[in-house]
C-alpha cells in the first residue's frame, strides 16, 4: 500500500497542548510539511510567540527561539542577519501578538523588507489569556473584555493586517487564507510555500495570514467554530493574495 498521508518529520512527536479542534495544529502541520518538502529542515530557525502558540518550540522539529510578546519579528531579524540568506527564518504569531502588542515590530520588519516569513494566525480573540478582545475581534463579538459585544465607538473596527502590510514597499508576498475546508487548507499550504519561496529567493518580507478558530473561547464546538469562521470572518476578512512580487 502506498502512503497517501503521514505525519511529517519536521514535527516532533510531542502531543500538542491545543484544545480539541483548535486550528493551530493544522497550521503547525502545514508549516512543518513545507519545511520538510523544501528540504530546509537543517537551515530553519523558527521564532515562537507569546499566546497559545507559545509552546511551538516543542512541536516544530527545528532550531527555534521563543520571543517576548509581539517581538518575534525583531528576534527573527536578529537571527536572520546572523544566519544569512541561505537560512529560513520564520515567526509564528497570533493576532494579539502580531496585531496588537507587536504592530511596531511587524510593520517595521515589512518596512525593512526583512527576509523573514511570518505565519499569522487570526482567530479574532486572545486564546491563551482566556478569551479577551483582540484587535481582530469582530464588531458585536462577545469576549471576556467585550462582554456586550465589540463596540465600534469604544474600540474601533477590526484591523485587517494583510491589507495594511501589503501597502508596504518591502512586502514581497502577502496572502490571507483559512483552515475551514480541505480546499482552503491545501491553499494555505501553497501560500506558505510561496512565502518561504519569497524568502529563499531573497525577494523580501512575506506573510501568510490564516483565519483560524478558537472553539474554547468562542464558546462553540470545533465544527460550529468552522461554520462561524465561514459565516462571520470570511465576509470581513476576504481571502486572497494581497501582494506578490
Amino acid at each position: 500500500m502506498a502512503v497517501v498521508f503521514k505525519k511529517t518529520e519536521a514535527l516532533t512527536d510531542t502531543v500538542m497542548h491545543y484544545c480539541p479542534g483548535c486550528g493551530h495544529g493544522i497550521v503547525h502541520r502545514l508549516v512543518a510539511e513545507v519545511i520538510e518538502e523544501m528540504g530546509l529542515q537543517e537551515k530553519t530557525v523558527g521564532v515562537a510567540p507569546v499566546g497559545c502558540a507559545v509552546f511551538a518550540y516543542r512541536y516544530f522539529n527545528v532550531d527555534i527561539q521563543e520571543a517576548a510578546h509581539g517581538r518575534a519579528p525583531a528576534v527573527a531579524t536578529g537571527a536572520k542577519r546572523v544566519l544569512g540568506p541561505d537560512s529560513l527564518v520564520f515567526t509564528y504569531q497570533g493576532d494579539g501578538d502580531l496585531a496588537s502588542i507587536g504592530t511596531a515590530e511587524i510593520v517595521q520588519a515589512a518596512h525593512r523588507g526583512e527576509k523573514i516569513s511570518v505565519i499569522f494566525i487570526n482567530n479574532a480573540i486572545y486564546g491563551m489569556t482566556g478569551g479577551q478582545m483582540a484587535p481582530t475581534t469582530l464588531l458585536g463579538q462577545k469576549t471576556t473584555t467585550s462582554p456586550y459585544g465589540r463596540d465600534k465607538e469604544l474600540c474601533g473596527s477590526p484591523i485587517r493586517m494583510s491589507e495594511l502590510l501589503a501597502t508596504i514597499e518591502g512586502s514581497a508576498y502577502i496572502e490571507r487564507t483559512a483552515v475551514n475546508s480541505t480546499a482552503n487548507i491545501i491553499k494555505t499550504k501553497k501560500a506558505i510555500q510561496k512565502a518561504f519561496g519569497a524568502q529563499v529567493n531573497r525577494k523580501g518580507f512575506s506573510l501568510v495570514e490564516v483565519l483560524s478558530t478558537c472553539p474554547t473561547n468562542w464558546g462553540k464546538s470545533p465544527v460550529e467554530s468552522m461554520d462561524w469562521l465561514e459565516e462571520a470572518m470570511l465576509p470581513y476578512y476576504p481571502l486572497g493574495v494581497y501582494k506578490e512580487v
Binding site: V4, K6, K7, V15, M16, Y18, P20, G21, G25, R29
Partner: peptide, 14 residues
C-alpha cells in the same frame, strides 16, 4: 480527514 486533523493522528494509505 488527515489534512484537517489538528493533532495529526490520522494516516492514510491506498
Amino acid at each position: 480527514c488527515a489534512r484537517t486533523c489538528p493533532d495529526v493522528v490520522i494516516q492514510v494509505e491506498r
